[in-house]
Design a protein around this nucleic acid. Structure first.
Lengths: 164, 164
DNA sequence: CTTGTTACTATGATTATCATAGTTACTATC
DNA sequence: GATAGTAACTATGATAATCATAGTAACAAG
């Protein structure tokens, strides 16, 4: 393609977000990082993306300050990728994307009644559904305060991806 | 490219969302629709995308049931695009993207102190900042209950785009 | 000294996106 | 009634991004 118009210098906040987050690979990589999967190979396998794409997107995320490289072994040099504060603040975005899909992207019965991914508020134990405020205690939900549990179908899919 | 892996049939809700919303053009088009700009040419001009891309993305959004075509004149046949309930429910996603950018995507002083886009809760008149619960009255914020006001810089940019 | 692990980069085919121009079907103005 | 304008697209050719597959580099373990 010709050089596509760069929207990162627009004054519109959504335009700026779209430039980074309007990308399938970026969203998938962020999902893995939020789940605590920090290593290159793990991300390649769990997302199903090619190593070249993952490499390119990690570089972009690094340059945007959303993630940072952290050495976990010196010889041979190995590092993992962690979300920065700026990255962790994307939780609301990912949570909203997940909530919308839970409400609209499944055919009735496809998930066996419940959500594809169940979230429980650690503080009070309530199933939060797709709410942004805990239906149990009324507190706003933040990253780290939720415990995610994949449905059996999702768990099976994840296992298949890791194994094959 | 080779046929990229389709993730819409994954059981992961974020994977399903990413397939549709992990796309810069889709996000930009949705922004315009949320602002009430419903016509093809308007969307082409305000997003800065080419007509072919806009056409392709509108078709995808139609087939996903996120928008619908509505005739507003018969001779010659003219139609506009409107968000469906499924589309309007994406408000949380767009609002989260906007909030993140407001907090992280501007250099200090770039917006002249305030946000690039100011939102006011119609019900109580409070400036909501980037909150999901109104800081004035404590109510959760929903689409239609907010009044958006672009900053002077953003307003100038929008005018330049429409004019040139 | 062969196999395994981790984190990549290189290659070539294929497809998406871009800018620009053209099309269709009318309405409004001169 | 001929010309210009508007709205909503489609067609064309160049360029860039993405994919699957394979290969590299640096070490550890057996």
């Amino acid at each position: 393609m010709p050089k596509r118009t760069d929207l990162s210098n627009t004054f519109c906040p959504l335009g700026r977000s779209a430039e980074l987050l309007g990308d399938r690979a970026v969203l998938l990589i962020l999902r893995e990082l939020f789940f605590g999967r920090r290593r290159f190979e793990t991300i390649v396998v769990t997302t199903g993306l090619g190593p070249q794409l993952v490499s390119a997107r990690l570089k972009r995320l690094l340059s945007e300050g959303v993630i940072e490289r952290h050495a976990y072994r010196d010889r041979p040099p190995r590092h993992e990728y962690r979300l920065t504060a700026k990255g962790r603040d994307l939780f609301d975005v990912l949570y909203a994307l997940r909530g919308w899909a839970e409400r609209w992207a499944y055919t009735p019965g496809e998930t066996g009644g419940g959500p594809a991914m169940r979230y429980v508020h650690r503080a009070c134990g309530a199933d939060v559904g797709t709410a942004t405020i805990c239906p149990g205690c009324g507190e706003p939900l933040r990253y780290g305060e939720l415990k995610g549990e994949p449905s059996p179908a999702l768990r099976a899919e994840q296992a298949a991806r890791s194994g094959g």
